[in-house]
Design a protein around this nucleic acid. Sequence first.
RNA 1: GUGGCUAUGGUGUAGCGGCAGCACAGAGGCCUGUGGAGCCUUUAGUAUGGGUUCAACUCCCAUUAGCCACC
Length: 395
Amino acid sequence: MKILRQSKKSKARIARFSTPHGIVETPFFMPIATRGAVKTLDIEDVMSLKPTVVLNNTFHLFMRPGLEVIKKAKGLHTFMGWQGPILTDSGGFQIFSLGARKRAGVETEGLVRLKDEGVEFRDTVSGAKHFFTPEKIIEIQKVLGSDIMMALDVCPPYPISHEGAKDAVRMTTEWAKRCKVQNATADGGVPLEGGKKYKGESRRNMRQPMLFGIVQGSVYKDLRIQSAKELTRLDFDGYAIGGVSVGESWNEKKKVIQWTTPLLPEDKPRYLMGFGMPEEIVASVAHGVDMFDCVLPTRNARHGYLFVRRPGVRAWQRKSFYTAMHITGEKYRLDMRPVDAECPCLACRHYSRAYLRHLFKISEPLGQRLATLHNLQFYLDLMRELRAGIWSGSF
RNA sequence: GUGGCUAUGGUGUAGCGGCAGCACAGAGGCCUGUGGAGCCUUUAGUAUGGGUUCAACUCCCAUUAGCCACC
């Protein structure tokens, strides 16, 4: 990774690194297409937004449609029609997420069992058992044709005892080592077309995907430090901060970022997983984070929650550089203005608030699509603005 | 016309001689590596008039309206 510019006012930086499907510039936000689709959007919608990288989920895609289908399609890129870079999350979060559901009293009996060797999942649809190991997760990600693979980690719930968090760090490091070994020794995967060979590349016509390690440690400083040190010794292509935004306060999240980012190598991408609200992203970029992903813009869009910029306010100037618009609100019934007159998205170019409200009120799918386009436009424009701000030296 | 049945928020429905619940719709809010078009909060009702009873949405009578059967 090459750092092109380092902000003088903060730890924010602009960097470039190459993936098998193109060169990317940081900081960037990845729209989420867990199961191979950004919910409600088609691929031309996605392309029109010009995202840097799109995120998919290894675990979900392995369950459905399964590797046989992906192989037949010659990889996930072709299968979903996206030719830009893809980051595949490993499924570590699902271990947590299903555990959390279990605590919440939702029926997950026997759905997930965590062991040192790996994790056992039961498919709720077919009832079939699957045992995922760090090695297997890497192999699956290679078959998917991922550009950026994530190591399998253990993402503990919040709150958790120091002892429990320590155990999660221990397993995460062990699994990270095994992912690293598997990635270095194993063949397999789908040939990535069109890429040039790396120096020393032995696998013909196949460019190597990147592999990221994931720092854990919950809200405990010593554990975050320990985890970051253990992982950086393994020399990954990039590092993620995981286990954040699972229920902590913003103050706690900020501390985790402040402890962790200085320990991650300058010349490797830093990825804050599952983040976040717009102001949290801005603050995190200022701490030197390069990559983000979050369900908020897409999920909130489907529930009629739109992000709207406050005119004339730069993102780093004020925490309240945007407002939330609940488009189903009665106050928009007769409001013929666009959601945001300055927004270039499809929704704002052609439709009024009243029309959008109407679509939501009658549950017309177009409403969710327009809202999703709008919110992603907001997030991606925010990242473009941050990059420009770092370039100009104003952020 | 005769007999029977029914009448509960905007809509569709529970209920019991002792605080009238539920669903949808309405209003407000929540969602942070998506197993969710999901979750929370909230507004709003016993057709009308009498009677019995300490107490009636509940039992009785009448009125009105609707439905069914018969003529």
